[in-house]
Design a protein around this nucleic acid. Structure first.
Lengths: 186, 186, 186, 186
DNA sequence: GATGAATGAGAATTCATTCAT
DNA sequence: TATGAATGAATTCTCATTCAT
């Protein structure tokens, strides 16, 4: 019984693609795996997405728009507390990273896979660069200058990368100290 | 034209794999592409390397052993100058990164691809982790404590990653300032 | 010459697989040999059957459903004659085996190959066991108890196996006598 | 350190081949698997056996010569007891089958694989036929006539086959009763 | 004698994409 | 509009055998 009108099918396919990408990596994406995961006919994936690249991009765009929500929630909390005399940025970032790290490695891994995939696929580069820029901009709203924000983003990326690679547990004090060196906080 | 005796066959295959990996990424490695690049029959690659993973690891090990030489050269220079009252570490690292960045993006890209590929392929993880450790240890020889070295490595990783992703040119002053924040140099 | 629409493709592949299995044995089955025999592209066999095992099973199921027809025909004749005071079972079975033996060795061979292949491939075991059970049940309908039927089936299997292995011609009297020992008929 | 003179190497290869065939089936035999199992260089297997078929035959010949020892032991016991007024044949055979069945399925499976392989490979046929003949001859020494022995061998083959296929446990009483029908013992 | 490198064919699968329906 | 059959290239890997050393 083919569901003729299934307006959410496109979205279901994207969601399935994200699940696959988190679980098996970007390289694990294929029309077949996605169709199976989404429980839609094979032809449906090629119908809604002209090529596999299109599907990948749609999935990654959605991934990139979602975690921002979490970060924005974080930022709201930060703002509410108030910057001057409020929570030190290093503390706030440390907490964000901790949540991030504990929120399942799947999502972070996927984000870094995006970075790397972008190195080879030009169409992904704007996405990855936008990711960095957005983060920089957001952090920049809480630093005295943009240069500091850029350094913080680089440091955060490096720290997360190491976290993923080494299986060392998240060391709050160490991360906090590292960030504080850059923010100049004590 | 059967080349029945070819004592350097194995090494030639590894070299070809590195060229492929630099040019097309780790994902571009396949028995076929490597065999073609090395100008050997397809079966030869599977004879010398039981699985593609084995070949990939052999190639990456070789890649990882080479750049160290460059870095060691750098370190020798640094040592020669002498640390106390000598070249500030931030300056030395900045110069190293600059050389690294200008030395063709292929090699850096490959290194970061290694990092990220390790996220999905357990057998690569020791390689990637060893890469980080080695770098940390080396830098640690020029810092007062290891914690500082770890932060520096994270920062360097983040900076190089951004460099690769954004196509922004290498900004010596900015990088130098970022590093100085961590080393505490003025 | 692309035959894009071919509604009986799946069945043709199964038929080809049976021909191959009869002619070259189960070990002779491969995507390639079947595709060539069925005159379809290689990819077509893997499209319709996710794995070679699936194809093998589909083929053997079809094989197993066919000879039953012959046996059922035999059974009908037997019933018509009537058991009490009718044709002795040993005579009827002898005639069945003779027809079976003369009906080309391909089919019997294939059946015994199924048995033996089941020893190594768990997925085939239900098929082979079902084959034995069905035969037992059918013969059981003409014996006083099931134990006798089981012994008869074992004996029949052994006799056919010897027939295949030794190239001795079918000896009606000998087979009849062997069966009669078990049925208790004189 | 190549062992130049290793007079038992040939035998070690055969033994390894038997282990492989028992564990993975005849289809699991290859120069490589055998060389690995025997811990000899690959070239050694092709040196001592011109083709894989030669190796297979050598292995199966050895297999066929070994279990006979067990059977001969059994026969000796049987003879000792004495036939006339001694142990009924059905009992003795039942015990033999029981030991056989409990002695690990690997060996029986291999024997039946030999039968089946013989169906397709002419060079194996003498081996398989000889196996049957030998068994017939041996049993014939304890029956009044050869016809009875032939029937017994067929029945035994069928019973063992069913045992392997159905995973039903060995039922001593049932087997004994089946054999007794043929031997005429009560 | 003995060995291991070499080779080309073939194995099972997976796949992106096209296209008739 | 939607689908699933179809296809041919490409994937990794195994292998029997040959042959230079």
């Amino acid at each position: 019984m083919p569901r003729r009108h299934d307006p959410e099918r496109r979205q279901r396919i994207i969601d399935a693609a994200i699940r696959i990408a988190e679980a098996k990596g970007i390289a694990g994406l294929s029309h077949r795996t996605v169709a199976a995961e989404a429980d839609v006919p094979l032809g449906s994936t090629t119908y809604h997405f002209a090529s596999l690249d299109d599907l990948l991009i749609a999935a990654l765009e959605q991934v990139n728009s979602q975690p921002r929500c979490a970060v924005i929630g974080w930022e709201d909390g930060l703002t509410a507390v108030g910057i001057p005399g409020g929570v030190p940025l290093a503390d706030a970032l440390t907490q964000l990273l901790e949540e991030y790290a504990h929120g399942g490695r799947g999502r972070i891994r996927l984000e870094y896979e995006l970075y790397l995939a972008a190195l080879r696929r030009p169409r992904l580069q704007p996405l990855a660069a936008g990711c960095v820029d957005e983060m920089t901009e957001m952090i920049g709203r809480h630093t005295s200058d943009l240069a500091t924000a850029r350094v913080l983003v680089a440091l955060i990326d490096g720290l997360l990368l190491q976290l993923l690679l080494t299986d060392r547990p998240f060391d709050r004090a160490e991360v906090r100290a590292a960030l504080a060196r850059v923010t100049g906080e004590r």
